[in-house]
Design a protein around this nucleic acid. Structure first.
Lengths: 128, 128
DNA sequence: TATAAGGTTTCCAGTCGCTGGAAGGTCAAG
DNA sequence: CTTGACCTTCCAGCGACTGGAAACCTTATA
């Protein structure tokens, strides 16, 4: 398979796939013409990566997950640990965003939003 | 004021303040020794920036907000527009994270997390 | 007055995860 | 034989810092 084929299958841009090769996540074979020649297994890996990334795992976490995926002797506990750590991180981010959201919502409600210069949002940002 | 003073006042690292000068958000005066010499107004601006950044506004949004803050003829509607756009973005991010969270939570619950290789998380990532 | 400690300066490089673009090689169709 | 679509590599840039090196300046103490 050429790169555009695996790109279509995985949903990842060709550029991203080349980047993933650069950082050692996939190692496709090469044809005589120098083109990358992806196996079904490579395509599978890329789909795995696309899905993992879409769940917010970092590249390094994806590398770990991929290694676990390829290791038939893995303990499911190892996978679970990675996922749970990621969940904690997601919760942290959500909480952070919710806090911003709350503050901003209040400020926006207080602002007239007309052509007068008076603005509680700016007043808040200026900090008294 | 030296940079460590405004750093302490604003809560921003000195490095960040230098960076903000680089990109033109503040323009502190310089003493004879070449040291930056921050006025109260500079310190105020930096506090404004710190607060804006902590609410998740991008640097460019901060630049806009700062310009509005300094413009006595501003219309509060302009400020409100920026804040509302940012709120929309926050909501988008929260929704994205919540979706990840939901999927991951389900997967984590389904995983035994013992020393056996069998793992629904990996099965999901592999996509059937 | 010498010196040491600590603050400040600039500049360059790295982070993360791509993404865009240039310059060139290859392939399939007409 | 040409066109156009694909592929290759390499280099640069995004956002918002952060770390570190080398050199200069200031302040406190011996």
């Amino acid at each position: 398979m050429n790169i555009s084929d695996v790109s279509a299958r995985s949903g990842l841009p060709a550029k991203t796939i080349r980047y993933y090769e650069d950082i050692g996540l996939v190692r496709p074979a090469r044809g005589e013409n120098g083109y990358r020649d992806f196996s079904d297994r490579d395509a599978h890996k890329l789909a795995f990566l696309a899905r993992s990334r879409s769940l917010g795992f970092s590249i390094e976490e994806c590398r770990t997950l991929l290694a676990l995926y390829e290791d038939r002797e893995r303990a499911s506990a190892d996978v679970k640990r990675v996922a749970e750590a990621h969940l904690v991180e997601i919760d942290r981010k959500v909480a952070e965003l919710q806090a911003m959201r709350e503050t901003l919502t209040t400020l926006v409600h207080r602002c007239h939003g007309d052509d007068r210069p008076d603005c509680p949002i700016l007043t808040d940002l200026a900090g008294t």
